[in-house]
Nucleic acid binder design. Structure first.
Lengths: 210, 210
DNA sequence: TTTACTTTCAAACAAGCGTTTGATATGTTG
DNA sequence: CAACATATCAAACGCTTGTTTGAAAGTAAA
């Protein structure tokens, strides 16, 4: 502990950072321990020494802080739930589509959905379940008591479905609409559309059943 | 050709069928040639003999006829575009979520999105692009000329996003709502919600800009 | 310095992968 | 029948994988 960090802690941190890159890029199956160690400048045996196994490294590489701060900041942003939904969608889509450290976490999570490993349990309980509850409360504020719980849940799914579509369909859009790029302006336009579309639907459906 | 099929053709067919199972279950990377041949009751060398390679087998295992007939049947079902959208969503969600041979094709396609191989080009050009155009025309009939082309495209994405969400999020729902099962009644309820939600949104948005 | 412990490393291990090989049946054709 | 092309097979090839090993280097206290 002569330096800021012990050598061991530095290696651990570099391995975790490299693992996030490689897991996000290739998925758990496609990622190789050797590539992670190469990027971290560490020996192949380092992963098993510090994390026990490749699975152990994945568990430590997960990080949901970005998603959590997004939600806590949103709650204190505005009293109007419609405005909070618009704000949430903008931040969420930027996190999902813009290239940043949080989007890498999203990539890892999305890959777990397509090809679950034991890490999916942690992802669901610590990230997805809170997100569903967060959006559930927001939808509840918007439609009031004019919808059943099942209807409200499906509205949450409709919102999340629209968001995740743009994420999943990126390789398709590159082939069908190569002129379309996910720059900041485009992402905000997408978020605005999802907000318009979803609020229009919820208001109309709440009015109809009222 | 003494029998109904030559022995060679039978082996080919069994390999393709087994490949669809295994690719859908494990993805292209996770699927092994040995497992496919075991299920087909064929020798390990059979894949390379009949299809050249594992990639070649995947290319032959793709089949979009279910998706195509769904669209052609839909076009002649009803003159009213709203009703056609409802019908399409019911059929599409049944294909996506109910267990049948078509849903296996969807699994293979979805896995290609998460982890593209050269087969994605064929999937996009032969299945996804026609589907986007099909829905684009339907949305155009519904909103008329009250929306820009970009807005209409985003409405198509909103509809497809809601559909694919229920597919992608199945492993999550098993953990969060284990009581929820994708039986025929539930799938039809989901399809009806997506139709209600999307038609309410499109009608409201078309009215607003008009 | 000696001792004990932690961390790194090159090398190897065992298992699994897609693919290839050459022999062996199988069926068709002259 | 003989000759030939096709199809199947056990076996092996070359390579990559996650993991293990035992020695070497580094670090800290006695």
């Amino acid at each position: 502990m002569s330096d800021i960090q012990s050598g061991s802690e530095q290696t651990r941190a570099r391995l975790i950072e490299a693992a996030r890159e490689v897991f996000a890029q290739y998925g758990f199956q496609g990622a190789t321990v050797r590539e992670i160690c190469r990027r971290a400048g560490a020996n192949v045996a380092a992963v098993n020494y510090h994390f026990g196994s490749k699975d152990g490294l994945l568990a430590e590489a997960l990080n949901f802080s970005g998603l959590k701060t997004l939600q806590t900041n949103n709650l204190s942003a505005d009293p109007c739930p419609e405005k909070r939904l618009r704000l949430f969608l903008k931040d969420f889509m930027l996190m999902l589509l813009d290239e940043n450290s949080a989007s890498r976490q999203c990539r890892i999570m999305a890959r777990e959905l397509a090809d679950p490993t034991p890490a999916l349990d942690k992802i669901v309980s610590e990230a997805i379940a809170p997100l569903h509850e967060f959006l559930g409360r927001m939808v509840g504020e918007i439609v009031g008591d004019k919808m059943s719980a099942a209807q409200q849940l499906r509205c949450v799914f409709s919102i999340l479905g629209q968001c995740s579509f743009y994420y999943h369909t990126e390789p398709v859009l590159q082939r069908l609409h190569p002129e379309l790029r996910y720059d900041a302006a485009e992402i905000e336009a997408i978020a605005a559309h999802i907000a318009d579309f979803s609020l229009a639907a919820m208001n109309q459906l709440a009015r109809r059943t009222a």
